[in-house]
């Protein structure tokens, strides 16, 4: 079978190869070099390239908080940042906070307080709450509510979420004698 001769090369409708480059990320204590296009969000890099699907894509526009991860200990929306901007940053996802055999204090508190229904927002809620603990600025329920407002839960499990976070906040502040 021969192709008809034309003035332009035949590509068969296949798009040009995506220009990718190596991006070195430290994810949950492990150094990973991923081959990524510059427009790959940190969220997509984690889910599609590092195969860590604990971090969830909710709105993909910074409005729901489901994609919250910790970068150098600070919580951010991984959907609104490019992976390539985080070369050599330390990234912690829900997979890095605890293990099924050894849950982190927040993960255990979420179980104890039934702080979820469908569970889709939970990894973002827990990473956000870990960021809140790292910041150390929330003490009262009102402060926790305000400083967790970047995480939506459409099942409405807010009461349990608040109880879970408050329990760990209280425990941490009593541990440091504050």
């Amino acid at each position: 079978m021969s192709q008809p001769l034309t003035s332009t090369p035949y590509t068969g409708g296949v798009p040009a190869p995506v220009p990718t480059g190596p991006v070195r990320l430290h994810i949950n204590g492990e150094t990973r070099t991923l081959q990524l296009a510059p427009w790959t969000s940190l969220l997509d890099a984690l889910r599609e390239y590092a195969h860590l699907t604990g971090t969830k894509k909710g709105c993909d526009h910074g409005q729901c908080g489901a994609c919250t991860v910790l970068v150098n200990g600070l919580r951010i929306n991984s959907c609104l940042t490019l992976a390539v901007m985080h070369e050599d940053d330390d990234i912690t996802t829900i997979e890095g906070l605890g293990t099924p055999e050894n849950l982190s204090p927040l993960q255990q508190a979420f179980v104890d307080h039934d702080a979820f229904q469908c569970g889709y927002c939970t990894p973002g809620q827990i990473c956000s709450a870990q960021g809140l603990l790292n910041e150390g600025r929330a003490h009262s329920e009102a402060e926790i509510k305000e400083l967790m407002s970047g995480n939506l839960c459409r099942c409405g499990a807010y009461v349990g979420i608040l109880d879970a976070v408050k329990e760990v906040v209280d425990k941490e502040s009593s541990d440091v004698g504050a």
């Binding site: 910074g62 951010i76 929306n77 609104l80 956000s128 960021g131």
Partner: peptide, 9 residues
């Protein structure tokens, strides 16, 4: 304004 996550970035 915004949320803690957005203000951090």
């Amino acid at each position: 304004g915004a949320s803690p996550q957005l203000r951090n970035a």
